[in-house]
Design a binder for these strands. Structure first.
Length: 187
DNA sequence: GCTTTGATTTGCT
DNA sequence: GCAAATCAAAGCT
């Protein structure tokens, strides 16, 4: 389990998004295998970085390999991985819970099936304890850990979910036939 | 300074 | 399956 090298994040955001499928992400030892991501860059109207750098999305233009955490709809959090091209990032949408299941259960509420722990960006952050205090933190350092073999998992590509602009662009990546996706893929 | 948006979740009909 | 909830921040698109 060696951490992914910094150079991994410097590639094209779409390549990174695809390669992240199958990589293990943990926060303070809690987490699992990434099964769903989305790619965003500054040329994407749906991206926070589209309108240029602002105080809110500064982390998105910050150092490669760092986290961009933001609050969505006032109540939920989303975790992004800042990539090589300035203003580009990969949204982590879902993962397969493997580590710290008991802690996630406690955070998400008892009675929930495991597949409800991380099948969505907001749930994922809740289960992993991610909040704004981690905005701008390096993914190569504690409490984050990204390990595994990039690009090893079978990946399918599909349209993105839950956004209003450029939603048809095939920039959503998911683990083929994984039961942990927030929604099944097109095929 | 105020309006509008926002990549979601949850519950209700 | 559909609509409402809910908060803060960015931008005036």
């Amino acid at each position: 389990m060696t951490p992914l090298p910094l150079g991994f994040y410097q590639g094209d955001v779409e390549d990174v998004a695809r390669a992240l499928i199958g990589v293990t992400l943990t926060v303070e030892g809690i987490g699992g295998v990434i099964v769903e991501t989305e790619a965003y860059d500054a040329a994407d109207p749906a991206s926070h970085s589209f309108a240029g750098r602002t105080a809110r999305n500064a982390a998105m233009f910050g150092p490669v390999g760092h986290a961009y955490v933001y609050r969505i709809y006032g109540l939920h959090h989303c975790l992004n991985v800042v990539c090589g091209t300035s203003g580009s990032a990969v949204l982590i949408r879902a993962l397969e819970p493997l580590h710290g299941l008991d802690v996630m259960q406690e955070r998400r509420g008892s009675g929930l099936p495991i597949r409800q722990f991380c099948s969505g960006p907001g749930k994922l952050c809740s289960a992993l304890g991610i909040d704004l205090s981690l905005n701008g933190a390096s993914l190569l350092e504690s409490p984050f850990a990204l390990t595994g073999t990039p690009g090893a998992a079978p990946v399918v590509v599909g349209p993105r979910i839950g956004i209003t602009r450029a939603a048809e662009r095939p920039r959503r990546f998911g683990w083929k036939n994984s039961p942990w996706l927030s929604r099944p893929m097109g095929d």
